[in-house]
Nucleic acid binder design. Sequence first.
DNA 1: CTTGACGGCTAATCGCAATTAGCCTATAAT
DNA 2: ATTATAGGCTAATTGCGATTAGCCGTCAAG
Lengths: 206, 206
Amino acid sequence: MDTKHRILDEALTLFSEKGYANVFVGDIAERVGIKAPSLYKHYKSKQAIFDAIIEEMNERFVKEAGALNISGTDPTMDAGIYKGISEEQMIELGKNLFLYYLHDDYTKRFRKMLTIEQFHDKELAEVYMKQYYDDPLSYQGMLFGLMVASGVLSTDNVQVMTLHFYAPIYLLLTVCDRDPAREEECLKLLDAHLRQFDKIYGRSIG
Amino acid sequence: MDTKHRILDEALTLFSEKGYANVFVGDIAERVGIKAPSLYKHYKSKQAIFDAIIEEMNERFVKEAGALNISGTDPTMDAGIYKGISEEQMIELGKNLFLYYLHDDYTKRFRKMLTIEQFHDKELAEVYMKQYYDDPLSYQGMLFGLMVASGVLSTDNVQVMTLHFYAPIYLLLTVCDRDPAREEECLKLLDAHLRQFDKIYGRSIG
DNA sequence: CTTGACGGCTAATCGCAATTAGCCTATAAT
DNA sequence: ATTATAGGCTAATTGCGATTAGCCGTCAAG
């Protein structure tokens, strides 16, 4: 990885741990293995480093748009996949979604940075909301809608069902972000949540 | 309110909006209506102001310990109350919990500040977790356990049921914190969530 | 009535962290 | 071979923001 890119990488790590204001350009430089003034050969200012991170993120998010969402293709296709899914497979999928969010290094650091910086910048708050509320709910809602249509799931309110699926995942994720030591505990609860979700909304009742 | 206390109040407002590092003591002073150096007649340093806020919070949290939790008394008593509760009353209670968290001015500012500052300070992360995960889940879990015992609710996993009750509330709260304009939308969804929760776990099935 | 604490003000100071200046080496293109 | 450029370094410079110094009016207690 070239220096220019390593700066972004180390800066993201530091920003996600301490927040923009508490990171000095010298800290970033040190991790990259250069001196602070050398950073300015690559970026005009500290703010420019931050901006570059945001821009890189936007690119990634566009590229990986569907990647978080199970198949990575369009939801119609996903629903086709789900038609013949077993309870165990459904649980596996929920877990994978969670573990992707939790462990993907870039995603994780970015999420923490957004959490810290979201109130500084209206734009960041919007990015956060989109990533962790609107997009998951709308994508999964669409998916669940199709699954309801095909009789795999049963409910008279897809939106609330989606909320019931996603909200615990989100909550457990925030727990793990704050205290990685609780990961195992959260994974157990996640498993129980997914089983219960399946019991409530799955074929057995529909 | 005396100056000393107004400083804390204004500082909390600013910290919750912009984060500790982005607030200058001059900003706080200006809001209070004095000049920056005069602050030092009341607090030794900017950090001391922050610490005083945390301490004040700890006091409030102890005092209001049960206040968030419906009756404010012990859960055994609360379960008694719930025994004869109607669906509408249950929904009302869930909404009130949500609205208290959302609108109580002190709680709200404090929550936002914790959100921003939690990664700076391990202690704050712990406070956050306790306030928004452990305490609600354990208190409500106890309550729901009693309600299950008395046949008001039905489930074979109280912990997951509690998660299903609370996680959507938490998620919707984070949405409103970030974008107050979405409050109405969130309240509608909250209402639908509570109704659905009642349908799933309420007497009708038990 | 006078004194001392309280709380405010203006004008420094102090320190730190971002940024700039200016220099040097290596390498790649002409 | 020459030169331009990229990218690194050390040594300033700058600017801002926290904090201190030192002054002043008020007011309550003696």
